[in-house]
Design a protein around this nucleic acid. Structure first.
Length: 851
RNA sequence: GCCCCUGUGGCGGAAUGGUAGACGCGGCAGACUCAAAAUCUGUUGCUCGCAAGGGCGUGGGGGUUCAAGUCCCUCCAGGGGCACCA
């Protein structure tokens, strides 16, 4: 028996697809388009099987849609700017560009060996000046449109590395690499005004019908719309006033204090004459902003000695604190505290011995005896102790108090957002330079468009900590485009999420001198099916939605929502292994003894940890090369698609890949050595034996079921249906019409498996005598008449318990069904001689005899 | 604390409110083989029974229904997201 030579076959078909340009596409108004995109990878080194699951799913969809007649755009590229390249430069003295391009070459080769149907002529790398020059232009347009601006902001500053860290890069208050205590620092940073679109980004979420619900919910929470009020408190002894934000204006009569953020301008002003306050503020700023720090930090306040005046009650004044838990970035950076109805305010009030005055009475509680001890009451109720609000509900009181505040000029109803503008400045080298020049005379001057791109210099040194662009001897020295005097370039670069916010547009016309050709984007966008990890539920997916809106407002395109359909796939996991010293071991360093215990190379016992996402640090990765060498790309693809539902995590096991490998060979054998001699191509099935007839129906049912499963992203179920079909074909023996049915069944199986195992499918398609590539064949159709059975097996229940089954004509009426059911001995026995009270008959499904 | 998801054989998982466990992995028995691997055939939820045939079964408890893995309430467990957001 000739085994399937996957190595030879996979290489050959990959070459043929490439030579014929099978997957090269161009916009074609006459044909319906379909844009399939997988989130492009960061070129970190090598691919492991976890990466490939994502691409296999995309390829599945792309090839399926192609067979359905769509003009399919399926591109691939590289999210090529980023910090790991700089770390490699520092560790191995290799230039980030060299490191990045070498990784791209390796990973492209790996992807090509998977037989993915990409249009490689559209490949892009975001670190290339031909790519990033366009986003420099976009940035200048954003500046003009007021969508980009520069302001001072508080950031996480690593004093050893001399750079800003993202919140994610601060672990337990320390820099993730340096281990230094992170400080808060006020720095001038560039921001993109994503908050300008907050309302629309939130309001459009319901239109994203083909997005997972939970991603929409996460974005909704992230944008965080809160209705409330701004309220103005007078400042005793001063002419100005304090503006606070609250969602509970109904509890204004329960106020005990007001509190400022340590970063509030008024706090800074008061600190000037108050060294103790200045010390307190400095202490607050030394604290990191990471979650872990916040969790353990004690709520602290500092009484400024200033009193604020209640806006609704004459002669009622409250103490003004500076408190470490009040955020400058949310609302107005100042709050009023109502301890009875807010837990945090209550804790604060107890600590500083402030009044706790209930103003919301829980339903059924006694107004004379109700008090708040250590649990704030935050539910609905009836307003008390609140002057004109008494006896109103919370909702009514909110409306009434806002109306009164507005009438008095002491406040107004407003909406607060959790969403903050996107800080895009990074003190890094390997990123897109921000195209502005700082002139001592003219201030900030945009680089003129004719001078774009501002290219990254390649001759940089990583010897000194901090940003190499800053240390470069010449690069940052420029002439001011306005006055012609000496000036300095901006040495910060963009956050790398900038690049990934529009790459899907660039794929539409990747070689254009413009960011993209309008006609191409109009044709291809939006992405019909986007596939990627849930980890981007907010970041990348929200930034891209923002970018599309910003580009639209700057006249670049018309698309508002870039991704019409989104699928978030599960991760690939593997067991973890640690030796006695706690060192992680690679799966290939492990073997098992007769009792199934895991041992290392020296036969020492190894502790087996839980299944986790494949990651380099825990070494629980399965390299792609070994799998493709040992089993072939198709086997890996089949396993990745068949073992778990796509949205769920998949556990990689040796037994699993072995099982897929067995099926590859089994299918190859079925086609090359069928149990029944195949009828010639195109022979119509004539008269059929009952077995052949039954098989033929199964073939058509399989086409219907597999098509439906693929449409619904049920790839594991689609594979199961195909296996069922080939099982049936293996069992078909010679008989009237068997050869014709065998050919039909085998050809259908090969065509259905095409998007999953494209090399094997092409190979078998050719072996079946076809000249055309399977990749160019349409998706199989089924005969609706053949998927309906003449006779159906119906379950028969007595009192809801299954007792027997009975075969009935498809359209049997209730009387026939009743007669057949009652004739069954199992039914008679179960009825125990009692008379039938009722009969439920659901045609094709069930008969339930109720006694 | 709030929100979301998940819970089905030894394992991954199927199942428009209508025959629970498709398909696969693993196990067991057999065929082939000098032997093994590979391959093939049969079998495989638990349980009582020689058998025929029963009983029990989708995390626990309750409910709706002729009928519940599926719908409702409640509890438990695991996973994820959000959180000094006023």
């Amino acid at each position: 028996m000739a085994r399937y030579n996957f190595k030879e076959a996979e290489a050959r078909w990959q070459k043929l697809w490439a030579e014929r340009g099978t997957f090269r596409v161009a916009a074609d108004q006459a044909r319906p388009k379909y844009y399939v995109l997988e989130m492009f990878p960061y070129p970190s080194g090598k691919l492991h099987v976890g990466h490939v699951r994502n691409y296999t799913m995309g390829d599945m969809v792309a090839r399926y849609k192609r067979a359905q007649g769509f003009n399919v755009l399926h591109p691939m590229g590289w999210d090529a700017f980023g910090l790991p390249a700089e770390n490699a430069a520092m560790a191995s003295k290799i230039h980030p560009a060299e490191w990045t391009y070498a990784n791209i070459a390796t990973m492209r080769e790996q992807l090509q060996r998977m037989g993915l149907s990409y249009d490689w002529s559209r490949e892009i790398a975001t670190c290339h000046p031909q790519y990033y020059r366009h986003e420099q232009k976009m940035f200048l347009d954003f500046l003009k449109a007021g969508l980009a601006y520069r302001r001072e902001s508080w950031v996480n500053w690593d004093p050893v590395e001399n750079t800003v860290l993202a919140n994610e890069q601060v672990i337990d208050g320390r820099g993730w690499r340096s281990g230094a205590l992170v400080e808060k620092r006020l720095l001038s940073q560039w921001f993109l005004r994503i908050t300008h679109y907050a309302e629309d980004l939130l309001g459009s979420l319901p239109t994203l019908e083909r997005w997972p619900e939970r991603v929409r919910v996460m974005q909704e929470n992230w944008i965080g719309r809160s209705e409330g009020a701004r309220v103005f408190f007078g400042l005793a002894g001063r002419n100005d006033r304090l503006e606070i934000f609250t969602t509970r204006p109904d509890t204004l009569f329960g106020a005990s204090f007001c509190a400022l953020s340590p970063n509030h301008p008024l706090a800074a002003e008061l600190a000037q004459g108050n060294p103790a306050l200045a010390d307190f503020i400095a202490e607050c700023n030394r604290m990191g902003t990471s979650e872990a720090v916040l969790e353990t930090a004690e709520k602290k306040g500092f009484d400024t000695g200033v009193n604020v005046l209640h806006p609704l009650m004459k002669d009622w004044s409250l103490p003004l604190y500076v408190a470490n838990f009040v955020l400058m970035e949310y609302g107005t950076g100042a709050i009023f505290g109502c301890p009875a109805h807010d837990q945090r305010d209550l804790d604060f009030a107890r600590k500083y011995h402030l009044k706790v005055r209930p103003v919301v009475l829980p339903p059924g509680a006694d107004p004379h005896s109700f008090t708040v001890a250590d649990q704030a009451y935050t539910e609905d109720g009836t307003i008390i102790n609140s002057d004109f609000l008494d006896r109103l509900s919370v909702a009514e009181a909110k409306r009434a108090v806002v109306a009164r505040l507005e009438a008095l000029g002491a406040g107004q109803g407003t909406v607060a957002w959790r969403l903050r503008d996107w800080g895009v400045s990074r003190q890094r080298y390997w990123g897109c330079p921000i195209p502005v020049i700082h002139c001592a005379l003219c201030g900030i001057v945009p680089v003129p468009e004719k001078d774009l791109p501002v290219e990254l210099p390649l001759d940089v040194s990583f010897e000194k900590p901090g940003n190499p662009l800053d240390h470069h001897p010449t690069w940052k020295h420029a002439t001011c485009p306005q006055c012609g005097g000496a000036a300095l370039r901006e040495t910060d670069t963009f956050d790398t999420f900038f690049e990934s916010s529009w790459y899907f547009d660039r794929f539409c016309s990747p070689r254009s001198e413009k960011p993209f050709e309008r006609a191409d984007v109009d044709y291809w966008m939006p992405v019909d099916q986007y596939i990627g990890g849930i980890e981007h539920a907010v970041l990348h997916l929200l930034y891209s939605r923002f970018f599309s809106r910003a580009l639209r407002d700057c006249g670049y395109l018309d698309v508002k929502e870039p991704f019409a359909g989104l699928f978030t796939q599960g991760m690939v996991c593997h067991e973890t292994y640690q030796d006695a010293n706690g060192q992680w071991l690679f799966p290939e360093e492990i073997h098992h003894d007769a009792e199934g215990r895991a041992l290392d190379a020296q036969n020492r016992p190894v502790s087996v940890g839980r299944n986790e996402k494949m990651s380099k640090s825990k070494k629980n990765v399965v390299g792609l090369e070994a799998i493709v060498e040992g089993y072939g790309a198709d086997t890996a693809r089949l396993y990745l698609l068949s073992d778990s539902p796509p949205e769920r995590d998949l556990e990689w096991t040796d037994a699993g890949i072995e099982g897929a490998w067995r099926y590859v060979n089994r299918l190859h054998r079925l086609v090359t050595e069928p149990p029944v001699a195949l009828a010639p191509q195109g022979a119509l099935p004539g008269e059929l034996s009952p077995a052949a007839e039954k098989t033929r129906r199964a073939i058509h049912r399989t086409v219907a079921a597999v098509t439906d499963h693929i449409e619904r992203f049920r790839f594991n179920s689609a594979v199961a249906r195909i296996r069922e079909l080939t099982n049936a074909l293996e069992g078909l023996s010679d008989g009237l019409g068997a050869g014709a049915v065998m050919r039909e069944g085998i050809e259908v199986a090969v065509r259905l498996i095409g998007p999953m195992m494209p090399h094997l499918a092409e190979e078998l398609w050719q072996a079946l005598g076809h000249e055309r590539f399977l990749a160019d064949e349409p998706w199989p159709a089924y005969d609706p008449a053949l998927i309906v059975e003449d006779r159906v097996t119906v379950a028969v229940q007595v009192n809801g318990r299954l007792r027997a089954t009975v075969e009935l004509p498809r359209d049997a009426d209730e009387a026939t069904a009743e007669q057949a059911a009652l004739a069954l001995p199992e039914v008679q026995r179960a009825m125990e001689g009692k008379p039938m009270r009722k009969l439920i008959y659901v045609p094709h499904r069930i008969i339930n005899v109720v006694v």
